[in-house]
Amino acid sequence: MLPLLVLFLALAALGALLFWPRSGLLDRWRQARQLADRVQMEDALKHIHAREARGPLGTPESLAGKLGVTVKQALDLVSGMEESGLVQSTGRGLRLSQTGRKLALRVIRAHRLLERYLVDELRMPLEEIHAHADRREHAITEEELDALEARLGYPQEDPHGDPIPTSAGALEPQETTALTEWPVGRPARIVHLEDEPPETLAKIVAAGLAPGMQIEVRRVSSQNLVIWDGEEERALPPVAASNVSVVPLPHPVEAPTRLTSLRPGESGRVIKLRCAGFSRRRLLDLGITPGAVIECAFPGPLEEPIAYRVRGALIALRREQANEIEIEAITAAAE
C-alpha cells in the first residue's frame, strides 16, 4: 500500500513540476520559446526597416545572414510575417506593411531610448551600449517606454545621432553625407555615428569624434582622413570615416574655449554645457548655468581635480567635467 502511495505522490509532484500553469517547466519553456520567437521577429522587422531606409531592400537571404539562421528558417519566418500582414514580398525584396512599420518603429524607439538612458544616466561608453540595448529592447513594455521617455526629457536623438521615433511612430529622416564623401575644407557638423560594427565605433570614439562636433576635413590619403575640430587634428581610417555622417555647417569651425584653459585666478563666463543627462543636471544644480561667471580658484596637490568658484561656492571638478564646459574668457578689466 505504502509504495503505491509514494509512487502516486511522486508522480503528482512530477506532474505539478511539469504542468503547473505559468510556473511549470512546460509553460516556462513555452514562454521562453514565445519570447525567442518575438525577439527574432522584431529583429527581422528592424532589419527590413533599415534596408528600406538605406541600401537595397532586405531579402530572406540577407535576413538569414543578419539573424544568423539558415535561409530556410528565414523563409519560414518571412512567410509567417506575411501571414500576419507585417511584410510584403515584392520583386526587389521585402517591404513593411503599415502594421509592420509601426511595430518596427516601436522596437527602434525602445532601442534608442535605452541607448540614451545607458549613456546619459549610467554613463556607459558609447561603443558598449548597442549590445545592451539589443538585449533589453524586446522585454520593455509600452508604459515603461513612455515613462522612460518622460524621465529622459523627451530626447530626440539617440547617442549616435539617430532620431528617436515618437510614441505615435513618426520618424523624421535626415539628409546626411558620409564623411568619406565630404569635400576637403568645408565646415561640417557630425550628426551620426553608425553603431555597427562596435569595433569601428570604438575606433571613431577613440579618435575623439562625437555627435554635435564641428569639424573640417584637412587632408585625405588612402590610409587616413585628417580631421580638424578647431583645436587639434585627429586621424581616422577611411573605413571608419564612412560610418560618420555629417551635415553642412553654415559658418567656419569655431574652436571652443573650455573651462580647462583657465589658469588659477582667471575667470570666464559659461556659454554651454556639452554633456547630457545626469552629469548635466549635476552641473546645473551646482549653479554652473549658461551665463554664470566662473573663476579658477586652485588646483589640488596632484594637479587634479581643480577647484572653481562659481556664484560664491567652491566646486571641485575633474578634467573631464571641466572639458565639457564651454566658456568665453573675461578679463579683469571688463568686470
Binding site: 581635480p305 571641485a316 575633474r318 573631464e320 567635467q321
Partner: peptide, 13 residues
C-alpha cells in the same frame, strides 16, 4: 568595468 564618471565636489566654507 567602466570609466570614472562625473565628479563634482562642493568645498564648503
Amino acid at each position: 568595468k567602466g570609466e570614472a564618471s562625473s565628479f563634482t565636489l562642493e568645498l564648503p566654507p
